[in-house]
Design a protein around this nucleic acid. Sequence first.
DNA 1: GTCCAGGGTATAT
DNA 2: ATATACCATGGA
Length: 309
Amino acid sequence: MRTFTIPLTPPYSFERLLQRLQTHPDPQLEVQPENGLLRRVFRVGTRPVLTRVQFVGELEKPALQIETSSSLSAAEQQELERTIRHVFSADLDLLPIYEQMREEPELAVLVKRFRGLRLMHDSDLFQSMVKTIIGQQINLTFAANLTQRLLTLAGDEVEDENGVKFLAFPTAESVARLSVEELRPLQFSQRKAEYIIDYARAIVDGKVDLERLWTMEDEEIIAHLTALRGIGRWTVECMLMFGMGRPDLLPAADIGLRNGIWLVYNRDTKPDEAEIRRIGERWAPWRSIYSLYIWEAVGAVKRKEVWEE
DNA sequence: GTCCAGGGTATAT
DNA sequence: ATATACCATGGA
């Protein structure tokens, strides 16, 4: 079976998802906004499978229609479906979270404006961490450029029926085989190149077991991974949030979050990390979703969306 | 030209 | 313990 449908939990705004992609470029995704269509490669096991994801239905009755370029066994299709449900945050019920967010007037505006917005998660924890390390300190455009160059250097190529090429994110094994000298010409800093390669080697050597992370608590994972050089608290918080889909993370060191809180709460100064953690206490146990909506307020301003009412 | 981007580490006090 | 320099580049 090459085509199947995945029902989504309403409300689900595919439009907001596409708008977020404008300010958060993803080199793995081909986007055809006019058709509500995305294409990218997902790995099933280790095999890269080119997949077409089309949004069908509407905000309050949404679904995804999936089509793969090669045929899959029943077990493979089940695995792909699980991955896609995770990536598109298909099962999160936003309504109880909205109830809580509406308790703050500054956030009630965001609930109304961004109804149905969810996070797009990373499809696996290796790429989640690598992309987060790449994103440390630099702007999103440059980060996307670096990720694209890493894909070109070490990713696996897949072609569609017309010979259009797509790249699957490199495996830990292929990144572990790279040298710093290969990443430097791609404009990775010396340190960043070392961090990424060291991380891939820790996985290949079995010093880090990504599967085991799914059985661990947030703080346990933070303690475990920040022991690695180049991986600080912010990086693990992002991996927990974007990679694992954990609901209650607050990357308080994040510059975007600082700017967002400054904007949304209309403060006269940017809050520091301690201040953000204090404000975020009342967002528990949904701090990840609150963070997303705060970030997207900044995104809307960058896109020059009219910000009124 | 300057400053800032979804930070983290190394070094100096 | 806390402060500062540094990374590498693009866009405002």
